[in-house]
Write a protein that binds this DNA or RNA. Structure first.
Ligand SMILES: [Zn+2]
Ligand SMILES: [Zn+2]
Ligand SMILES: [Zn+2]
Ligand SMILES: [Zn+2]
Lengths: 161, 161
DNA sequence: GGTGCAAATGCAATATTATAACATTTTATT
DNA sequence: AATAAAATGTTATAATATTGCATTTGCACC
C-alpha cells in the first residue's frame, strides 16, 4: 500500500516535519520565526505542492491581515536555503522536504490526477545523471528531476472506476 | 571537443533544424506558417534556451509591427505539440529539439556560465527513472530532467583563467 | 467565381508568479 | 540606552502566461 493512501496518518507527517524543522533551526542557530513556521505548516498541509499565492491565501485566513507576496517569498527562500522545502519548477510550487537534515536536491514523482508529489530517496537517478553528464564532460551541480505520471493509488482507483 | 565549442558551424544547426521542421510538417500535413517558422528560427538562433518575451523582442526587430504575447505563445504551443521545441521549466524558456521526428521528452544539461543547454540522447536516465518509479507503483508519463552545472568548455575556460 | 467553415492570427485585457526598493520593527550586542 | 543586524511591512512593478473576442486567411464545396 502506498504511503499516501487513505490510511496514512497525515497529522504525524506534519508533526514530524515541524519538530524536525524546530530542531534543525536550533542546531544551526537560525530563527524559526512565526511566519516561517506558518509557511512551513501550509506547505506540509498536504502532500501536494502548493503555490506561493495559495500559501498567501492560507495565511490571510488565519489572521486578520493579509501578508504581501514578499513576506511569503522571503519565508520560502529561508526554507529553501535550509533545505526544509523544495521548489517544483514545473509547477511553480513548493513542497516539504522529508529529510532536511541531509542536504540534497529532491527528485519527485508527481501524480497528474491527485496532484500528490512523492520525493524519491534513491541514488539510482543521480548515478544515471552523473554517468550521462560525465560522458559529455559536464559537471553536475543541481539536478532537477520532476516526473509527471500516475501514482499507484490513482491507477487503482481508475481500474475500479 | 564539445559540440558547442567555438569550431562548430552553427549555421548548419539552424539549416538542419529548419529543413527537418519543414519536412516534418509536410509529412504530418500541418502548416509551418511564417510566424511558426520565425519563432523556430529565434529558438534555434542559439543553443541557449530563450524566453517567450525575448522571442517577442526578436520578432519586433524583424518587422515593423510588434506581435502580442499570444502570437508567440501560440506558435510555441504548436512547436511544442509537434516536438520541434522543448520547454525548460526551471528557466521558463524554450529550446529547439534536435530530433523532432522521434517523440520524446528531452533531458538537458544546462551550463550555469554560458547558459548553453545540451539535450541528452541517452536512455540511462529514463531507465533509472522507470526503475525508481516502478518501485513505488508509479506510472511514468513525462519525465522532466534539467541538470544545472558547468559544461566542459566553461570548465576549460575557468581552468585557464 | 462566390459561400461557408475551420484554422490561424490580431488585439486588448487580465491572470499568475516573482522581485525591487525602501520604511519600520524586532532582536541581539555592546 | 546606543548601535547594528536581521526580519518584516509596504508599495510598486517586473516577468511570464492566458482568456476572450474580433478579424483574416486558406480551403472545400456549390
Ligand atoms: Zn502525510
Ligand atoms: Zn495520484
Ligand atoms: Zn549549433
Ligand atoms: Zn558553459
Amino acid at each position: 500500500m502506498d504511503e499516501l493512501a487513505k490510511q496514512h496518518n497525515h497529522q504525524r507527517c506534519i508533526d514530524d516535519a515541524m519538530t524536525q524543522a524546530r530542531e534543525l533551526c536550533q542546531r544551526r542557530q537560525i530563527k524559526f520565526t512565526a511566519i516561517r513556521e506558518q509557511v512551513l505548516a501550509c506547505v506540509w498541509a498536504k502532500h501536494q505542492p502548493i503555490g506561493a499565492y495559495a500559501i498567501l491565501e492560507e495565511l490571510a485566513k488565519d489572521s486578520t491581515r493579509r501578508p504581501a507576496p514578499p513576506t511569503v517569498y522571503r519565508a520560502l527562500d529561508f526554507l529553501l536555503d535550509n533545505g526544509l522545502v523544495h521548489r517544483i519548477a514545473s509547477l511553480n510550487a513548493f513542497i516539504g522536504c522529508k529529510d532536511p537534515s541531509h542536504h540534497h536536491q529532491g527528485h519527485f514523482l508527481i501524480c497528474r490526477h491527485c496532484r500528490n508529489a512523492m520525493e524519491l530517496d534513491t541514488d539510482i537517478i543521480n548515478s544515471a545523471i552523473n554517468t550521462a553528464a560525465t560522458q559529455h564532460g559536464f559537471a553536475v551541480e543541481t539536478p532537477c528531476v520532476e516526473v509527471v505520471g500516475c501514482c499507484a493509488n490513482c491507477q487503482e482507483l481508475n481500474r475500479n472506476a
